[in-house]
Amino acid sequence: MAESHYFIAIPLDENIQQKLKPVQEQLKKDPALEFKNWTHPQDLHITLKFLGASADNTIKELKKSLQQFHQSDRFSLEVRGIGHFGNPQKPRVVWAGVEKTSPLTTLQKEVESLCLAFGWTSENRPYRPHITLAKKWAGTEKISTPLTDEQFFGSLLVDRIHLYQIHPAQNPKYDAIEIVRLK
């Protein structure tokens, strides 16, 4: 049996999900924006660490260790703007922007450090917090207008982190198997 895939992330509250849903719907209507995957509104999140395929016993131990984050303070950040990763004419990912605050950066580094202790490798790229709206370009034509917007979607209270298990055949795909509330 294949190992399940996992990641650690900040879930979005329903308010932010509801503000991003019509943005996704509008983007989907644009015939120039063809993507293989559009993120289900309930699956929207801010990734702290992608773990990939992981053994059950390692995940069980990680769940216990994640409890240390109960001592981390809650914080707020802003969700603002639309952007992309990759070629602007054939973007690999379309995202909603997330304010890169000191508390967010600290939390991400602490999660990264914990995961390194369990044997996961460090990410090679700098941390760029975002909320993936669509990914995997499937278009045949290039986009002629830049895919950017500075719209404000609201403030998000970061009061918990989730360990998610990925179920590729389902929609929504992500199941929170561990929830750690911040103080």
Rank of each mutant, 00 (worst) to 15 (best):
A134Y: 02
G81P: 05
L116Y: 08
D73H: 12
L147G: 04
I46G: 01
E110F: 00
V79M: 09
E123N: 03
P126E: 13
F35G: 04
N15Y: 14
D30K: 12
T145K: 10
V180N: 12
K90G: 07
L116V: 04
L182P: 03
G97P: 10
D149E: 12
P172A: 04
A96K: 09
K63R: 14
L107C: 03
E14D: 15
F153W: 11
D43M: 08
K100N: 11
K49S: 05
Y164R: 00
K173F: 10
T106W: 05
T39A: 14
S4P: 01
F7E: 12
L147E: 01
T47Y: 07
W137C: 05
E178N: 00
L12K: 11
P11F: 01
P91T: 06
I8S: 03
E25D: 12
Y6T: 01
L44W: 08
I82P: 10
L133E: 07
N171K: 14
D159E: 14
L20N: 03
K29R: 09
E25R: 07
T121H: 08
R92L: 09
G139Q: 05
F85Q: 11
Q67S: 03
I46F: 02
E3D: 13
E61R: 13
H70D: 09
E78D: 06
F118R: 09
P168S: 05
T121Q: 15
K100I: 00
E112R: 13
I16Q: 08
A96I: 07
L51G: 12
F118W: 11
S144Q: 14
R125T: 09
K63S: 06
W95E: 02
E99R: 00
D43F: 09
V158Y: 03
A53H: 15
D43V: 01
R160Y: 04
T47H: 12
R74S: 15
D56A: 13
N37R: 14
S102E: 14
I143H: 05
L51I: 12
K100L: 08
W137H: 04
F69S: 07
S102C: 02
Q24K: 15
F7V: 05
G119P: 14
T148K: 15
R128P: 00
C115S: 12
I161G: 04
P129N: 06
G154Y: 06
D13L: 08
S113Q: 11
L27P: 09
T58N: 03
V93S: 00
G119V: 07
P172H: 04
S4M: 09
A55H: 08
K60V: 01
A117G: 10
Y164N: 06
D175V: 10
L133W: 05
H45G: 07
M1P: 09
W137D: 08
R181E: 06
P91M: 02
T132V: 03
